[in-house]
Amino acid sequence: MSRVLLGRRGLLAGGLGIGLAAGRPARAQQRPWRIMMITWRGWEDACQGFADYFSERNVPVELILRDAGQSAATVTRHVAEAKATRPDLVYLWGTTTAMVALGPYDALDPAIHLADEIPAVFNIVTEPVWNKIVPSLERPSRRATGTLYITAMEQQLATLATYRPFRSMGITYSPIEGNSRAVVELLGQEAKRTGFELIDRPVPLDDAGKPIAAALPGKVAEIARAGAEWLYIAPDSFLNGNKLPLTQAALDAGLPSFTSTEPYILQAHALFGLVSRYYAVGQFTAFKAEQILNGAEPATIAVEPLARFSLIVNVQTAKRLEFYPPLSLLRFAETV
């Protein structure tokens, strides 16, 4: 009899456990998870989304913030610290951060790279396969996974054509950034495939090998003079640092601009964007991080984009350019 009762009690406890798991964090964590967040240029919406995900779900985490100040050497220093302090997970923000911290999957250097010692998640990363962060999006095959925040180039261009069909497009970018080069290459492939002209004007570098910010407005004007109908803004850290002069130059040249990332349209004057909201991408990255903390193997967790992207039209820019969105687009687009 007592055995039966015990059995029942056991069942009850099991049921309670499942109930807890469904409504509350999967594990009653005594010690908070330690997550080292290595960012490229400080705290922004994706980081906030990442952090909020855990607090909303009452998952205790201790976030160790390390910013690289846009320096690869600093990233390497933070990686060394992580190896010494052994956090439960490393969060990597940005393409360069992820490339420097994780290293190319086919040429790992255990001395400087995380090299599978500590699991990692990355977000706000452009073309992780092209940049050799993971060999495949479906199976990352190393102790790192992450999220995508940019839709496929084909989809971006198809969306752009719904605003206005085009025959030529210009792009300016920092030639030293891997993500920009990846985008230019993809854009070139699409230009060949669908038959538009790509006007490619990289920003010149100074003697130290850094892109010259002052040259940006001139490059944009050059692109406009060459007959571009749109300016494509690449997800590039250099451009992001100069988003106001860049988009102002496009306005001055009467050139509509398109972006796949939100800062150019929310914080500057880009006209039209098909973007993932950084905050939502950060939450989605935290969801993947939680899976890893609960014991899932990062090597088998696919690198994915969000299911929904936002269409954003900057109406002020549209008015200044007198270049208005078609009514069908206004049915679905957000406006700022």
Binding site: V315, E322, Y324, P325, L327, S328, L330, T335
Partner: peptide, 14 residues
């Protein structure tokens, strides 16, 4: 949003 009535774009397809 301030788009003038005579400047609405692609009204017929819409």
């Amino acid at each position: 949003l301030g788009i003038p009535a005579d400047r609405l774009v692609e009204v017929d397809p819409f």
